[in-house]
Structures are given as C-alpha cells and as structure tokens.
Amino acid sequence: MNGPPAFVFYTERRLVLLTGFKAGNLPELLRYLRRVSGASIFYHTHHQYLSQHFEKPLFHNDFAKWTARALLEDVLAEKLTAIDLLAFSSIRQLRERIIAVIEEHITGSTRPAREARPDDLFHFCESMSFLMPTGIVADSVDTFFDKIRDISNLSLFCHFFEARLRLDRPTNDFSLWLRGLGEEQLASRIERLDPYAMTLDELRDEIVRVGESR
C-alpha cells in the first residue's frame, strides 16, 4: 500500500549572468525594469538574502540600495524597501509594483532627475539557478521536522523563495506538502512566517519551533 507522498528536499546552486544593461538615473532604471527578464528582477530583490551579512543591511533589494546610495533618493529607497514581497505570487506582479512605485515618485518629484556617478551605475544582472535534490527525504511529518534542522540555507531559499515566485506555486513548498497531508494548522503556521523579515537561519529556527510546539 502506498503511504503519503514523501517530501524531497531540494537545494540549489547559483550563477550570476550579466545583461550589459546599465542605468545612471531613474528614467533609465525604469526603461530596463520593463525590459529585463524575470530572472533579473528576482536576482536584484532576493540575492541579498543568501549573502552573509556582518551587520543587518539597511536595504535588502538592490533597487532601494542603489537609489539611496547613487541617486540620494532616500524617500524612494524607503518606498522600494517597503514593498511587501510576500504579497506577490509572481515576478510579473512584483515587477509591476516596483515600476509603479518609481513612476509615482518621478511624477511627484519637482526636482530634475539625479545622475549617478559614472562609476556607480546600476548594472542589471540575472539569477541562474540549478535546482537539485539533496538526497534528504522525509516520509512523515515527524521526520520532516527532524530533517529540517539540518538542511542548508540554499535549500530553504529554494523551497521558500524560488517555489513561490519562480515555480508558480501558491505558497512555500513546506506548507503545500503539509496541507496535502491534512496538516492544515502546521501548514498555515509556516505560511504565516515572513521569510523577508528574518535571516534564513532565523527562518529555520522558526520552522523548527513550529514542529516542536505541535
């Protein structure tokens, strides 16, 4: 007899592609935001979550970071940072929101557009991800919460960020699987965690806590 489907933990390896597109002011940034691939939007809004930080970064997305640093557009940077990434289930929606925030800012601004220094342009990159199984498999809820302690940040990134935004899944993979097993409460508790508001290590700890308190 077949039991419930097992959860196969995936992980990912990443390369960065360069597009050759560069922006030196907000109109140029907008032009390329409309043109670049979804993999580029994903890269610039997500790669910092995988980087090791010695101190909490002020901005997690590159658009906010660059507009603050290179264009001294602090108000816009704050608005771009305030975009709730969890509110979107596709890169397309996220791209539209970023564009809307910048357009709104340009329309409302009375100042002429600032230019970045020639050595501080925004260079559009793209994320290339290779998803592969880790070899770790959980065949029950108990083993799932047991194994989750040992999975890498890349694996968490894959099941939380890639799954929702690039693999067109309605939610993170963990909640999806638990829900399929009828564990609705556990599924929604994990779903309520905001992975953008914490580090991946903290996210893992939170999931472990959900498991411990069940």
Binding site: M128, F130, E162
Partner: peptide, 22 residues
C-alpha cells in the same frame, strides 16, 4: 572552481534561467 563547473552545466541548458536537475 565551483563557478566554472556550474558554467559547464549552464552550457548544457542554453537560454534557461531555472534549471531543474534530476
């Protein structure tokens, strides 16, 4: 070294940005 190896892998998947490996 890891990046060079990944690039070898990338060359087998031209045009793809999200590559699912078995």
């Amino acid at each position: 070294l890891k990046d060079y190896l990944l690039l070898m892998l990338a060359l087998e998947h031209p045009g793809e940005r999200l590559i699912r490996l078995p």
